[in-house]
Amino acid sequence: MAHTITEKCNGCGLCAKLCPVSAITGEVKSMHRINVKRCVDCGVCGKACSEGAVLNARGQEVVRIPRQQWPKPVISREACSACAICVDVCGKHALAISLPLRPGDLRVYAYLKDEKACVGCAMCAKQCPMEAITMEIAGGEEVPA
């Protein structure tokens, strides 16, 4: 399944820029398309769209949400094994593994290094084998991944 873009699209290109897997293509000022094979149904395109031009996999219009209210990954240091799957899967390179505090420190973990780059797609949370990542909106409300 995948998200789709309707004719309401004004071709602003914001969704293509934000899409964490580069699934969206299109010329400026013309209708954009979502590559069905690539789309991971994260809905970031729809949350960003000012025209309400994005439908989710069930055909419902995705509601626009101000960017400050997009969820961000919160990583449990205890559960994280620093396997770096999340770092690899993040299309925005927003995550990194922390540096050891001193030589010989093995207790490192993934953290949100570049908060601005994160689009809240939750791919990291979905892929984390340790279920160490939860998606939360600023203020602490948890959002299902």
Binding site: C83, A84, I85, D88, I97, P100, V108
Partner: peptide
């Protein structure tokens, strides 16, 4: 190596052993 050259340890993707 650890005392004189190592900056940190790392690992392949998905590896907790690192």
């Amino acid at each position: 190596l650890a005392e004189n050259y190592l900056t940190r340890n790392s690992g392949c993707i998905s590896c907790p052993i690192r």
